[in-house]
């Protein structure tokens, strides 16, 4: 038996690089945001020229976030979005993965790359690209739709959110598919072979063997998608100049970004950021508990 000291030290050595950066760039900024969210600035004079100082605000900034409503509206908006976007994304990614995994699939390598390709396009570029496809007068989609008498308005007050959902789905379905494919590849072959010998057809294999066994991958991609929905940022930001229907506080991240960097109110923005992190935590862990309980039950 080696001594405890000897066994621990290599582990610690490996942990230090990660731990240091984790502390520096993750834990400390969060603590700093928490700290900042508890203060506000008081000024006298028209421009603070007669005195400016920071005072402890307690939960005052949080109360204001709820009172002003714009942030709450943005949270409700992304929650509504998530209710639609998460199932669409996960079902689509799972179907694509199962299709590629099917015994009868042809051109698997080509399609796998093709589905994954949009993920390689940076989010901002993808949004610019789709922005052109949504803009009347430029977009072939709009002109075809108009010729068919549909008069599509992709940037309207009730449609722009779903146009954003389309961009996100286009971008990330392939990525989520790949996570699920990886798990499908790792399924033990003898299990499926045994099922085939027992006479299970392709549908039965999917329902009774594959889907239950890729559950962890589906849970993982669902959590990713929930968090991604709450953190929606670059797509609406890029589409914003094209439409009047995306305001500066359209999503919680945009609201925090705008309050910090356009309105230069870091304390208020910190409160918004902390609230958003809390909501993401509650939803993600809530979902994990939900699926965990079901599994046990």
């Amino acid at each position: 038996m080696s001594t405890g000291k000897r066994r621990i030290s290599p582990g610690v050595g490996f942990f230090i690089p990660f731990g240091a950066f984790f502390l520096l760039f993750f834990v400390l900024p969060i603590l700093y945001a928490l700290y900042q969210s508890l203060f506000r600035t008081e000024r006298s004079g028209l421009y603070g020229e007669l005195g400016t100082h920071q005072v402890f605000a307690g939960l005052g900034n949080y109360a204001k976030v709820f009172a002003e409503g714009a942030f709450v509206d943005s949270v409700l908006r992304v929650l509504g979005y998530a209710v639609v976007q998460v199932p669409v994304m996960i079902v689509l990614a799972t179907i694509l993965a199962l299709l590629l995994d099917a015994a009868s699939a042809r051109g698997v390598r080509f399609f796998r790359s093709a589905y994954f390709l949009p993920y390689g396009v940076p989010g901002v570029i993808a949004s610019i690209l789709w922005g052109f496809l949504y803009t009347p007068g430029i977009s072939p989609l709009v002109s075809i739709g108009t010729d068919l008498g549909l008069n599509p308005d992709f940037l309207g007050p009730n449609t722009v959110l779903w146009s954003i959902a389309n961009i996100v789905t286009w971008q990330f379905a392939g990525y989520n598919m790949l996570v699920i494919v990886a798990q499908l590849k790792a399924l033990p072959g003898d299990l499926l072979e045994a099922a085939r010998i027992d006479g299970a057809n392709a549908w039965q294999q999917v329902w009774r063997i594959k889907l239950p066994l890729i559950r962890p991958a589906i849970v993982l991609t669902t959590v990713f998608t929930i968090i991604g929905s709450l953190q929606l940022f670059s797509e609406p930001l890029v589409l914003k100049p094209l439409t009047a229907n995306i305001d500066a506080a359209y999503t919680p991240n945009m609201a925090a970004y705008n309050d910090a960097f356009n309105n230069n109110n870091y304390n208020y923005a910190a409160a918004e950021a902390v609230l958003l992190a809390l909501i993401a935590c509650v939803l993600s862990f809530g979902f994990l508990r939900l699926v965990g309980r079901r599994r046990r039950g």
């Binding site: 028209l46 007050p157 009047a244 500066a248 506080a249 309105n263």
Partner: peptide
């Protein structure tokens, strides 16, 4: 001193009234 935020707010409120 908060003009940029006023303009942001107007972007949202005017768009809402127009819609």
């Amino acid at each position: 001193p908060t003009t940029s935020s006023t303009l942001d707010s107007l972007n949202a409120t005017i768009a809402a009234e127009v819609n």
